[in-house]
Design a protein around this nucleic acid. Structure first.
Lengths: 209, 209
DNA sequence: ACATGATATGAAGGATTGTTCAGTTTGAGG
DNA sequence: CCTCAAACTGAACAATCCTTCATATCATGT
């Protein structure tokens, strides 16, 4: 994941001593906390350093500029998310297609709901940075995993696996994101998730026939 | 729509002469153009005024501050979008549910695809402003229209119209948005739209049975 | 033609922020 | 204990940007 980051956005140096590594974590955590609390527009390098308990200079030895900080935070987040999805896909190999869709929905929804405020904050932090490469790589990893999964479905008979896969992934990810932008009650969210599963199941059955 | 805007975000004055109205349009257009060309981070009041062919002072007689400008642009955009959706919903009253879903998808997708760059730019401009009220009002208008539509379906037998409606709207809007964040080919997008329609149809049929 | 309010101008102010760098502290290895 | 590079500090700099206001121009009604 780190490999394809534009050179201008890459972190400046990797920590070689223990304290530097701790500093890096503190900076990440401070960034997320401030993003959640005050939002991106109020996120300044000074404030991040202050909150992380380090000086501004230290920050600039880790990241060449503010953008690379935001980039790194999102990269880390997407890395973890991608791993979870890949794990789920691997575990679901060979199952019926409907069970796969349900597993995918559960994993993705759970990952996003784990820390809803962070999810929301990161969704909105993607403005200032060149996120195309990041999203493209995440999408590539995801699609590879899900395509392999759906291709192994025990009841598979899709005319076009890639098309079906793309539809499911786009619908699921999009629905989850949209549900985060509205202010739904917990009940409504749970119901929405159930409806989404039903929708995917009905769609997959209609594909078979 | 304008009524519920926080007072601090409302435009300063309504134009009373012809030239002022023209100025307002020029400012809107300039804002959108710059948003599309350079993105939000590079959108400065000076540049907007320059591009609109007016001075900064003129801008500040229309809008008390930068935020209110962005707010107004998005408000205008959502106003038009809501009208289109309401029109579609009214025209589809009494049709079979599947036809309703298809009409909704067509309208929404067409509205977003009409000027894809503007759509993308506005999706990303929503960071700096307090958009909750805006989105809430849009959602309320939309849900009212779509709920009324689906409740009038000729083949309706939903156990819970509101639940089904919420699911369809969230899925459709979310899918369209997500498809805009990936770089799909035109073929893939068209196929995706067809799959989405198929998915909604299958879902609605499964609701009946 | 005149008066008056609406509209437009743009240089200047005030405040903030990203970034640097010369110097200090820390810690691991010899 | 000493050494040297890695890590850290934070005041200062430079650049930018939002916003204001005193002034000028325009359009309308009389």
């Amino acid at each position: 994941m780190t490999t394809s980051a534009p050179s201008s956005l890459k972190p400046r140096k990797k920590p070689q001593q223990a304290r530097a590594s701790a500093t890096l974590d503190a900076i990440f955590e401070a960034t997320i906390q401030l993003l959640v609390k005050d939002g991106y527009p109020l996120l300044t390098t000074t404030r991040v350093a202050e909150r992380a308990g380090v000086s501004v200079g230290t920050m600039y030895q880790c990241f060449p500029h503010k953008q690379s900080l935001i980039y790194a935070v999102n990269e880390r987040y997407l890395e973890i998310l991608a791993e979870k999805i890949e794990y789920t896909c691997r575990a679901a190999l060979g199952l019926p297609a409907a069970a796969m869709a349900e597993a995918l929905i559960d994993t993705y929804w759970a990952a996003k709901t784990e820390r809803p405020d962070v999810t929301r904050a990161l969704y909105r932090s993607v403005v200032e940075m060149d996120n195309e490469a990041l999203i493209a790589e995440f999408a590539a990893r995801t699609e590879a995993a899900t395509t392999a999964m759906f291709a192994s479905a025990s009841n598979r008979s899709f005319s076009d696996v890639e098309s079906v896969n793309r539809a499911l992934v786009t619908v699921i990810f999009g629905t989850v994101r949209n549900s985060f932008e509205r202010s739904h009650s917990e009940q409504e969210v749970n119901d929405l998730r159930r409806q989404l599963i039903a929708m995917c199941r009905a769609y997959l059955e209609s594909c078979v026939g």
